[in-house]
């Protein structure tokens, strides 16, 4: 098991290098140079000053060399500083990360808690009324532009009913509340972003749970259990669900890139003070160091999530573990 974990962990490094290299190259394809973004049309910054600036930040060197230097700094977690406000990129990201993690982790839990039961019930009662309704729901869920759903939520719960706040996380007045009321306010602010974030993956995961339960139901050991005369509720919980959860765990890991991608849209729509919005704003401002930082951290989080789901998978399935130790 230890070797398996170590092997998986080591795999993260080449992936991170590959992905960051793609992003680095993409940014250097972009027209316009850093000096003119930072100093714009400022006539006081002369051509030679700009050349010096380029030299100081190694911007005059070839892309590959620059990438090497960037990786070297990355090892000490130094992403440089923002071109817009000179703040350290790492500090900017760490101040935004908790909000994103809060939103993502809660969404992930909700997706899991709702999608798995839906999938199991649909599979066990195949072609029932419930299954048909859920199939329709899944098709609509797949086809709904998630940002549009976010707008509808704002329109309906924010404006028509006026039940929930539509933007931000902790407004100024929360400083004057006690911790109970502050939590209540935070939850109210979380509802709409969480629903919007969870919705798309909900359809995918419930569909996936359904098909993996159906697959397990056709296995011989389930037939044996039935032949032994076990009650069907026991068969479902002890035999089917346990085995079906295996593949569901993996797909949870694989749904992370979609969740992170979504955070760039939803955090912008709901003015959520997280990393996704930071990334969007950085892209809009051509703030290269921040863009790279957000990109790398987002990728890293995704890879860690996939790593964790791999480990969980190996933990519950001895076959993988043994295979990995060979």
């Amino acid at each position: 098991m230890k070797r398996y974990i170590a092997k998986r962990l080591l795999l993260i490094i080449p992936m991170l290098i590959g992905i960051s290299f793609i992003m680095f190259t993409v940014m250097h394809l972009a027209p316009g140079d850093t000096a003119s973004i930072k100093y714009g049309m400022n006539p006081e910054v002369s051509g030679s000053a700009r050349a010096n600036f380029d030299k100081m930040y190694d911007l005059d060197k070839p892309v590959l060399v620059q990438y090497g230097l960037w990786v070297k700094r990355l090892i000490s977690l130094d992403f440089g500083s923002s071109l817009i406000d000179d703040q350290a990129v790492m500090a900017k990201i760490t101040s935004r990360l908790p909000a994103t993690l809060l939103l993502q982790i809660i969404s992930l839990f909700i997706i899991f808690l709702i999608a798995v039961p839906i999938g199991v019930i649909s599979a066990v009662k195949r072609n029932s009324f419930f299954d048909r309704i859920m199939t329709i729901f899944v098709f609509i869920g797949y086809a709904t532009p998630s940002f549009w759903l976010a707008l509808l939520l704002i329109l309906f719960f924010g404006f028509k009913l006026g039940w929930l706040p539509i933007s931000g996380m902790s407004p100024w007045y929360t400083a004057y509340l006690d911790s109970f009321d502050r939590t209540k306010d935070l939850i109210a602010h979380l509802v709409l972003p969480v629903v919007a974030t969870a919705f798309g993956s909900l359809a995918a995961l419930s569909r996936y749970s359904r098909s993996s339960v159906i697959e397990v139901m056709n296995e011989n050991y389930v037939l044996t259990a039935r032949a032994k005369g076990l009650s069907s509720s026991r068969i479902v919980t002890a035999h089917i669900l346990k085995n079906a959860l295996l593949s569901i765990i993996t797909i949870m890991g694989l749904s992370l890139p979609a969740l992170i991608s979504g955070s760039f849209i939803f955090e912008t729509i709901f003015a959520w003070p997280g990393m996704g919005r930071l990334g969007y704003e950085a892209i809009m401002n051509y703030d290269y160091p921040v863009v790279m930082g957000v990109g790398v951290i987002a990728t890293f989080l995704t890879l860690i999530g996939i790593f964790l789901s791999d480990i969980a998978y190996a933990f519950v399935d001895p076959r993988i573990r043994v295979g990995g130790e060979k």
């Binding site: 590959g18 760039f264 990109g295």
Partner: peptide, 24 residues
């Protein structure tokens, strides 16, 4: 296949946003 794996783990939407902003 390594490239495919990288594409799978990538928050692709972020890459798309980046490329499009920078290319115009």
């Amino acid at each position: 296949m390594r490239i495919v794996e990288i594409m799978y783990c990538f928050p692709t939407f972020f890459l798309i946003m980046m490329v499009i902003t920078f290319l115009g």
